[in-house]
């Protein structure tokens, strides 16, 4: 049972990570910096609960704000580059964040123990959940409350004018500018919102694993972050969720018996998805199709 609860937790956290990239991807920016924002959120939230004894919710909120501000600051220079160059620039930023935490030492002495981030050895003993007696089920429920709230907010944003504006910028920047859209503001805002979501996700990650270190926030995690929304499609938030369930639940856990061959499968899958379904598993066409089917069955029922 605990195995499945653990899996549900992982899926929840990765969904947050995927949604942070989803937001940025709407504006046509492929960002490999999301793992960096995730790391910042993880360390900030961990330090707040462990060193400053904050409760979890405010710690997560501050983690989101810090990661979001950083994302906003990164958003401006990132605007100058596009496409592949943006991928390289954001990947470099993510690595810089990782290396920062590799060297980051901030330990306090508490009751004969040294606690806090300790460079390459990582940040151990983020024991907020066990200390306050949260069961695995409660932790999983907490994670999913956050995930559902985030998904609901993004779902709503997708349907608002802001969502349409993000997509418009992603489709054609020149046309968007010429329609009176301030592309700079839109792109930086998307980056900031993505940073906030990644920060909160990272904060949760730190608390359920209880031990974080720099190597967890490398380029692999950054690739996963963008792979989810690319695979799931940008038409709605459920695409990302389904992609996470598919990759984490089936590819990583379900095919565990294949060992390291899974990585090969993962790479192949992305190439396949980009060729067969360039707009993701669930694209606007799929939505129209589903709507039509539902509509038709209703018509039949009423006839």
């Amino acid at each position: 049972m605990d195995f499945y609860l653990g899996l549900i937790q992982i899926i929840g956290v990765h969904t947050l990570l995927g949604l942070s990239a989803y937001c940025v991807l709407h504006t046509g920016q492929v960002s490999l910096a999301q793992a960096g924002f995730f790391a910042v959120g993880a360390y900030v939230a961990g330090m707040l609960t462990v060193l400053a004894h904050w409760p979890i919710v405010p710690a997560l909120l501050v983690a989101g704000v810090v990661a979001g501000s950083l994302a906003c600051a990164v958003g401006f220079p990132a605007l100058r580059v596009k496409g592949l160059m943006l991928v390289v620039a954001t990947a470099a930023f993510g690595e810089a964040v990782r290396l920062f935490f590799f060297n980051f030492n901030y330990q306090l002495e508490r009751g004969g123990f040294h606690i806090g981030p300790h460079g390459g050895e990582g940040f151990r003993q983020i024991r907020y959940f066990p200390e306050y007696g949260w069961s695995t089920l409660e932790v999983a429920a907490f994670i999913w409350v956050v995930v559902v709230l985030t998904m609901a907010a993004l779902w709503w944003m997708d349907r608002s004018r802001a969502g349409a504006v993000l997509r418009a910028v992603g489709e054609d920047e020149v046309a968007a500018q010429s329609s009176g859209i301030n592309v700079t503001v839109v792109k930086v805002s998307a980056m900031t919102v993505g940073g906030v979501i990644a920060g909160i996700g990272g904060g949760i990650f730190a608390h359920y694993t209880t031990h974080i270190e720099h190597i967890q926030f490398g380029i692999v995690l950054a690739t996963f972050a963008v792979a989810y929304p690319i695979l799931g499609g940008l038409s709605n938030v459920f695409g990302t969720l389904i992609a996470v369930i598919f990759i984490q639940g089936f590819l990583i856990e379900g095919l565990r018996f294949m060992g390291d061959w899974r990585n090969l499968l993962f790479g192949g899958l992305i190439v396949l998805a980009m060729n067969v379904r360039p707009r993701g598993l669930i694209d606007a066409g799929t939505i129209t199709l589903v709507k039509r089917l539902v509509f038709r069955s209703k018509e039949r029922a009423s006839a």
């Binding site: 489709e171 046309a175 301030n182």
Partner: peptide
């Protein structure tokens, strides 16, 4: 910048159509 000119009242179309196709 271009978007500010639109708010001042200048709008345009493109020779090679540039719509937001997925909207």
């Amino acid at each position: 910048p271009p978007h500010a000119r639109v708010t001042l009242g200048i709008a345009r179309t493109f020779q090679n159509i540039r719509l937001f196709g997925q909207l």
